[in-house]
Amino acid sequence: MNVLLELDDVRVSYRQPGRGRIQAVRGVSLSLGAGTVLGLVGESGCGKSTIAKAVCGLVPIDDGSITFRGEPVRRLGLRRRDPHAMRIQMVFQNPYASLNPRRTVGRQIEDGLRVNPDQAAWSVASLLEEVELEPAWASRYPHQLSGGQRQRIAIARAIASGPDVLIGDEPIASLDASLQARVALLMRKLALATGAGLLFISHDLSVVRVIADEVAVMNAGEIVEQGRVQRVWEHPEAAYTQRLLAAIPAVDGLGRLPG
């Protein structure tokens, strides 16, 4: 496997007013290869979003290392991002906050196209088609679109830049249930079609099961279990994973209470 992204014993802490330093990530090691989908699952506050931010250089790491194609990922300060690091892109959780309300969606997708080394790879129209939207919508503003449509635009913008690593930080959590699996599958399809690796972060193991090859389960800043997604889903080993799986309400109409 061609390893793109490697996290080695990464530790991140935050200072929280009145509570001292909080260890958000306590020694996480992960690796993501080209053409694979790694699911990162955990509940709120487990540190999974902090990992996404750290990989993009948005938060400083205390210890350990994050390397992308063999080079360490540097903190994104005030300066322009290093072109090498621009091969890592992210789709955010809230599609209502991740698009600039004052620019048309077409222009925002162009922002992505501009940094793609392969200029001929996409056009705005082809990307819109790829995310199952009308090419004519390029001239619309974000507030004219629904949440699911906006998230497709955010995905198109990230794909437009031709990323090697695509990170989805809870990209489907604020969408209607019937859209979640579809948008997640769309991310998988586009990431794999472009040869990228996808790090898909979610609290919902049932969605991750559908799109990921491997899954890592996080709790309290640590990875408690990692493995092929089917194995973890069917034979969870860690007690926490078992608890997490048991808590997912089954859609069987039997009225069984989870947990």
Binding site: R81, F92, N94, D111
Partner: peptide
């Protein structure tokens, strides 16, 4: 801190592009 500003920075906006394109209009 808005996500669209961060998204723009991840796509290589320098501080002045970020200010003029994403921050100030909003």
């Amino acid at each position: 801190q808005a996500e669209y500003v961060i998204a723009g920075r991840l796509l290589g906006n320098g501080p002045f592009t970020s200010l003029s394109k994403d921050v100030l209009p909003n």
